[in-house]
Amino acid sequence: MYKVKKYKIKNGKLFEIKLEFSDKINNIRIFGDFFVYPDEGLELIEKELINCNIKKDDIKLRIDECLRKNNIELIGIDSISITTAILEMIQ
């Protein structure tokens, strides 16, 4: 299945997710006017989420682990918002 959703962080930025999924995430693209340091960090997060179970803890853990492992800093978006947006999309 393929879905697109815009998600507004409370008091924060608007971002968009394009998600292909079955019982797992098959592909994901995250768009928006946020900042990611270093620049290639977003692609690393997207890659890390492929084949992830669509469960809150699994998604958030994979993102947080990717941030930690690669020293990625997010500004204007965070792992909780991405996780919440994905979960809302599959409902």
Binding site: E16, F31, D33, D39, L42
Partner: peptide, 9 residues
């Protein structure tokens, strides 16, 4: 556009 935005959007 910003690095993480979509041109068409």
């Amino acid at each position: 556009i910003g690095r993480f935005q979509s041109m068409n959007e």
